[in-house]
Design a protein around this nucleic acid. Sequence first.
DNA 1: ACCTGAACACCGTTCAAGT
DNA 2: ACCTGAACACCGTTCAAGT
Lengths: 209, 209
Amino acid sequence: MEDVETDRRRAILDAALAIADEHGLAAVTMRAVAQRVGLTAMALYPRIGGKDGLLDGIVERLLAELAPALEDSGDPAQRLRGVARALRALARRHPAAFPLMLARPSVTPESLRQLDALYDTLLGFGIPARHVPRVERLLSTFALGYAASEVNGRFGRVDPRAGRGRLDPQTYPAHARLGAVLEDPADWDAEYEADLDDLEFLIRSRWTA
Amino acid sequence: MEDVETDRRRAILDAALAIADEHGLAAVTMRAVAQRVGLTAMALYPRIGGKDGLLDGIVERLLAELAPALEDSGDPAQRLRGVARALRALARRHPAAFPLMLARPSVTPESLRQLDALYDTLLGFGIPARHVPRVERLLSTFALGYAASEVNGRFGRVDPRAGRGRLDPQTYPAHARLGAVLEDPADWDAEYEADLDDLEFLIRSRWTA
DNA sequence: ACCTGAACACCGTTCAAGT
DNA sequence: ACCTGAACACCGTTCAAGT
């Protein structure tokens, strides 16, 4: 049961997120967001408190989309994997806005609730309490970093990574040694799953009986 | 042996980085950078190609500071650890500019050379060639993400994390179960080293004989 | 070749004024 | 209580002009 104040605020933030999705983060101006909800820029201030509040609010909306993945769902390992996949899917739905999750960390009751759900999952996995906060940061750092790297093009912009296996062997000897490996088209879906396998292996072998 | 063109460009980029260090990324305007090097904003365009080129150039300067850590230095494990520590130290020296490394990936000859050095280290570690690119992305994603999270305050802004062990047990049950663990002051230096230990364990047990 | 000054089309934000 | 319109101090960038 949300009051009308919250509904109006949410409509503004969703408009901002939609503009980011359609035209990029630079297009998210106070004026553009206001126009999309039928107001002037100045009318936004009492509700979202300026540009900084607007960007923090976008992060809130992204977290809200992540919430279903953090519901109870039996096996802790499957739950962890579900959250990791949901985070990457979120980044692909909102590539322009997603990096805000790393840049503007949220400390709302909702974000704390999500952190609580993650702690619960890690405890359910059998990780000793004293290691849980660190393991949570290790995993969330990797998952956030991977999704952000992907949408920011850090892993290479297109599939044929422009003959990285055929660079000058004098200046790039290790690339030359890798050769054909670098010519394979990258499959980020498969790579992410392999990384999750590795991290699950790490957790099981280090922190559970 | 660098020509004068490159020197001038470097002076501009170093001025931009200095402004970011002193007054934050928002203070890095074309006009402010120009003033610091004794020019008008328009004089920067032929050398750095607009605001986007300026930000990419800042990333170049950050990478240049990282270069010494990628020199040969015997044991591959120690070299990897050295690079990981140098990356985090870089983030602490340039907290405002560092997140650009994740947001604006660089694809210069220098960045390729650094990637090559990393590939070489992983091959020297005994990792099979077909796994090297993925392992490099796994490690660099974690290291970049950790350093960025730290400077962006994602791990909590100050040391006493405001009684996170004493939240309402009804809404945050896992926090309540962790209790005293969350009251410990966080030591990010020690945590980072522990994470590196874990990742080294992962590499050794999965990909080397 | 290199730089400047004026100008343009924006920005976030303040504030007095309207209803 | 909620919103507007005008204004302010910026921004990145273009372009004709100077030397």
